[in-house]
Every structure is written in C-alpha cells, then in structure tokens.
Design a protein around this nucleic acid. Structure first.
Lengths: 155, 155
DNA sequence: CCAAAATAGTTTGAATTTCAAACTATTTTA
DNA sequence: TAAAATAGTTTGAAATTCAAACTATTTTGG
C-alpha cells in the first residue's frame, strides 16, 4: 500500500487519540463483564491485583506493592478485602517469618482464568484478520512502548 | 514472513500480558513527566480531564461527565480543584443559563499541548520503523478494539 | 400564560481508597 | 549479641467518589 505523509500524520493523530481513550473503556468493560458473572464483588483494581498475584508465583507483599506502585499500607488494606471475600490467602514463609507469600484460593484462580479469557478474547478481536507477520509487528510495537517507558523512567 | 500456529499463539499471549501492564505504566509516566515540568500540581486523572475538556470545544459539565463516566458531583469537585489551580474556567452559557461551558485557561492550554506532545512522542516511538501500511494495520487494530468494546457493552 | 415537569449543575454526607509515619515482629550484620 | 535492617500492619488524615437532595433555569402542555 502507498501512503502520503499526510495520511500517515492522520493515522498518528488517530492512534494517539484512540490510545488516550481506549484503555479507560477496557478497564471499565472488564470490570462490568466480571461483575455479570459469579464474581459480583470485584472491582477493576482488585482484578488487576489478582492478576499480579498470579496463579503460581507465591509473590510477597513487598514485590506486589513494588510492581503495582502502591504503598505497603494500601496493599495491606487491599489484601485484607480480598482475603475477607475469599479470593486470596496469606502464607507465612517458614524460611523467613517476616515474609508473607500470597496465593489465590480456588475461587481466586477461577476469577483469574475468567479475566484472562476475556482479555484474550479482546486481543483476538483486535487482531482479527491479521497474519503472522502483522501480529509480529503488533508485538514489536508493544516492545517499543516498553522500551520508551524504560528510557523515560531511567533518564 | 512465515509463522507456525504455535508462534502466533505465543505472540497472542505476549500481547495479552503486555497490554494488561502497559497502560498503568503509561499513566504513571505521563503524570511523572508532567510533574517534572512547571505543572507540578497535576495528577494523571486531572490530565485526562484537561484532555477531555480540550482546546476548542466549550463542552458542558454534563457532556464531560458522560464521556468520563464520572458522576456529576464528582466532576464538580474535580472542576473546582482545576479552577482553583488556574487550569480551567467555567462560562455560563447565555442562551441557556443552566448550562456551564468549560474552557482551558492559557496555563491549561499549555498543559494540554505538553501532554499531547509527550503522548505523540510515545506513539512515534511505538511505531518506529513502521511503514504506511503497517501503521494502517495498527489503526485497524484499534478500530477493532473499539468495535469489540461496543459490541460487549451493548449486549 | 403559567403551573408542572424536566434539565444542568452544586451541595451534602457517607463510604472507600490512599498515603506516610509509627509500630511490631523477625532476621541480618558487625 | 546488641544494633540495624527488613517485612508487613496499624493508624490517622487527606483525597476521591457516589447517590440523593437541592437550587436555578428552561421547556412543556393545558
């Protein structure tokens, strides 16, 4: 395909505008889809936290608060809520008893998988009609963004 | 380029994972970049609100609260803060005096342009090395996401 | 023309979320 | 083995959000 520099500029503007708005909508729709299922007591933020805790990692509270850039106090409060609602468990690490390892309950794992499946559906619809090389390009674009973010952060 | 279905599946997983995390980082970095400049009193949420109010539109409070899905009360509070800090002005609409039209002050416009420029930089770094047809594909992917979101919302 | 209904935005009071700082318990260091 | 460092919790205050009640204005229908 042939493109003038004006057309490319329009595309840049379009992409820039769309990106600003789309993510907000994604967060909202993920929350509202999850709340239509059996997981009616979960917010978008909690979904994000459940995702970060993950299925297998046994992360510590400190690791999670670093990744999500939440203060330790805030994370403690969030974990209390998710524990009360039965999605996560705290496990005292027996090698170092200051450390709490985090895990998902079976209910938490179900939620994790439901969320992941929905997200996956979104990505599939996004890449509908794309061939392998297109998808590689898409992947490259995300790697580029990550690199840009790293550069800006460390500067 | 040739790709096996396994490679494509890996790409899907990669893209899915990356998307979940990247936006949070973008929001954070936009806020922290803006705060390094003369606009030290602005949060990511306020940046989003300033962007929505826009340079030329004279939107009403109701329009903005609908777009951002904030209650009218919440928006009033946010607007009070931005007005106090000198970024926006409220203008009573003389045709219908119930309506408040919103506008950016010159300080608000400077902030808008600084934010947009940074966002634009991010998009450019993301699409570095892409040709016109690649960029069209990227644009199509975003249109697909928007369509997916609309379908899910209206179902 | 005017009373009732509708609309735009603000105020209010409660709930939730967040943070930093102080604190407790445990481990590491020197 | 006492002091320092680390992991996580508690605490109190500030910020954010919402729904519902409220004020001011405009539109509607008789």
């Amino acid at each position: 395909m042939n493109s003038t520099s004006d057309e490319i500029k329009d595309d840049y503007n379009f992409i820039s505008e769309a990106l600003i708005d789309i993510y907000d909508q994604i967060m909202r729709i993920e929350e509202s889809e999850i709340r239509k299922s059996r997981f009616k007591d979960i917010t978008a933020k909690e979904l994000h936290l459940i995702h970060t805790i993950g299925l297998h990692d046994r992360k510590t509270t400190s690791e999670v608060s670093r990744v999500l850039k939440l203060s330790k106090g805030t994370l403690t409060a969030n974990l209390n809520n998710l524990e009360k609602k039965g999605y996560i468990i705290r496990m005292i690490n027996q090698q170092d008893r200051r450390i709490i390892n985090l895990g998902l309950t079976s209910k938490g794992r179900l939620l994790y998988r439901a969320h992941y499946a929905f997200h996956r559906q979104l990505v599939e619809s996004c890449l509908k009609g794309f061939d392998g090389s297109d998808i590689r390009k898409m992947r490259q674009a995300l790697v580029n963004v990550e690199k840009f973010i790293d550069e800006v952060s460390s500067k």
